[in-house]
Nucleic acid binder design. Structure first.
Lengths: 349, 349
DNA sequence: CTGAAAGCGCTTACAG
DNA sequence: CTGAAAGCGCTTACAG
């Protein structure tokens, strides 16, 4: 391991000066700066981030908080319901990398021989002892007490698909209401009137807002929704499948279905197939999210695209602002976009 | 932030002693040990891992190396072809957590103002400056020069689905040959003779070994495979779909298909559906991996299960052995298991 | 069984 | 513009 000491010696300066050029201080003469660069190059020097962190008490690391039944870790991320979040994670990684931050998978508490009793304090302590710069929470179960603790702690945090705010907490989400409005209006314009809604988890922000957007749009059009046509469920593909099977077994006669997510739509389509109903010939189907499976689906799925890029950039940017001590940024409500593909069609044809 | 200094003061001992009990040294009297525990509990102390790392020059962190076109990062992990690896990642995380190691998403090089020219050196340097304990490489493209560099470096590394070995490198994989044998024999026992093989990427270890297992088994049974019945492709669902569409357009008359992965099988099934062929009535279909989508598929997919638990435990265990300086462990070849579900059936019915 | 001291490699006031 | 010095909080020989 080559150290800054060696670089300094080779360049004929002190370690302090090496450190200065590494950190972009302006107070270094162009001439010595060059000498130092040269020394770095020939020696193949890289800053030891462990000791840098020790000196500065920061890790340049963003922790991820992911919801799961047994804590806040990576487990269950392959559940079909999290497919969209996985994509978001990619983008977040890219954005973090631009700023030279590493992503840390949710740390388990350790280094604590005598952990405090309550899990929330333990969680915060784990975050603190690792000196994470902040945390981005995805796909979380907001009933988890650790979430509340995080929100009230001094650790900067960003919540995705939530509405938690606090001194060092803000959130980032898509405009679900408007997305649902676009989906519903699209079907209305195609002449559909008997529409079923499978909003996903009606108690979640995502599900609740999407459903509300649909309802408002229907109301605006002077239409009332048959309560039987609203079918909440979980977010997994099979949840959609089962909800749709139940629905179809009751012989409901609809011409279109709005799904709370693309994954749900895939499950619903499977149920339709079981009932020998074809998309879009017999029933139009529209999803939400625009995951990559939607484009390759048969037929390609009409959906509401979330702006993954804006969401992830917004999340990282806001987090780093808080890290720098700037005042807590306002939430980001990203706009959505209707992507018309082949799973919806006009009713009169 | 409460420090060990404060704990020491409260317990009436020196920092050295606090450090000793924290690190499980035996040379501490039971009495002072208790006092220190008490102090830790009342103060809510957690070890500062940044400074611990600085002192010890280790990070207790395992870096992940993930293949992608543009480097070794998280990107593309949502590709359908990586679905199985995602599941593996969960298990690896769990195993790492048991040993109190954190998982670091692949670090981009930073802290290097004057990066060395070649990317492989840069990559190794990034790993070194972050003092990662080791790296686990998943789903990698073995042509990446960084992989070779990693293999030749002193950083302990584990490769999944590879055969790279070195001083500080070993690998972990399933017994693909035997898995393919089980799959083929299963079909043979059901009376199938005209069987098509979609092995995935024939140049990859996973694809090549699976294909070879099939071929050997057929040969053992005294059967020759029509070369037209071997259809390599990529690993994505759509790759399977397209390969199968091409195959079916040529009107090949087979009664069963062995797919190189479950994801491929799902794509193949989609193509069959397009051709109005039903599984298993018209064609038996068997996959590989046993991802969770297989069980919920319609019909539930017969497949060869990989032992995810054994693979991930084997990977982490081996990595930590190397970290401790033990001699490079032997590779792990995990056994596979035939899971019979509803996508295969006897030919005479 | 325990403490005083040196060291991990870096950064940042403080002087000049 | 540059260096000497102190500090980040921990760990581990070295003594006793």
């Amino acid at each position: 391991m080559v150290t800054s000491e060696q670089v300094a010696r080779l360049a004929g300066v002190s370690r302090a000066t090496v450190s200065r050029v590494l950190n972009g201080s302006s107070n270094v003469s162009e001439e010595t700066r060059k000498r130092i660069y040269a020394a770095i190059a020939t020696l193949g020097y890289g800053t030891n981030i462990l000791t840098t962190g020790a000196s500065l008490n920061r890790s340049h690391t963003i922790a991820l908080a992911l919801s799961s039944d047994d804590g806040l870790n990576f487990t269950h991320l392959t559940d079909t319901r999290y497919y969209f979040y996985l994509k978001l994670l990619q983008y977040i990684e890219r954005e973090a990398a631009k700023e030279r931050y590493d992503l840390l998978l949710p740390p388990l508490p350790y280094g604590m021989l005598a952990p405090v009793d309550d899990p929330e304090t333990t969680y915060i302590l784990a975050l603190q002892t690792k000196h994470v710069s902040g945390v981005i929470a995805l796909a979380l179960n907001s009933t988890d007490p650790r979430i509340q603790a995080l929100c009230h702690s001094s650790i900067p945090s960003i919540f995705v698909d939530s509405r938690l705010e606090g001194t060092n907490t803000t959130y980032v989400k898509s405009d679900y209401m408007d997305g649902a409005r676009q989906a519903t209006e699209h079907l209305l314009q195609l002449g559909h009137r008997r529409i079923a809604f499978f909003p996903g988890e009606a108690i979640s922000i995502a599900g609740a807002e999407r459903l509300m957007g649909c309802q408002q749009t229907m109301a605006h059009a002077g239409l009332v929704i048959n309560p039987n046509f609203i079918r909440p469920s979980g977010w997994n593909l099979m949840d959609g499948y089962q909800a749709a099977m139940t629905f179809l077994n009751e012989h409901h006669d609809v011409t279109a279905i709005v799904a709370g997510s693309d994954m749900l739509a895939l499950g619903i389509q499977r149920a339709l197939r079981k009932h020998n109903l074809h998309v879009p010939e017999d029933i139009s189907l529209i999803g939400f999210d625009d995951i990559d499976l939607s484009e390759t689906n048969d037929p390609p799925l009409t959906t509401i695209r979330q702006d993954t890029q804006a969401l992830s950039e917004g999340a990282v940017t806001r987090l780093l602002q808080m890290t720098r001590g700037e005042k807590t940024p306002a939430p980001l409500i990203a706009s959505t976009q209707l992507i018309v593909r082949a799973s919806t069609r006009s009713i009169q044809k």
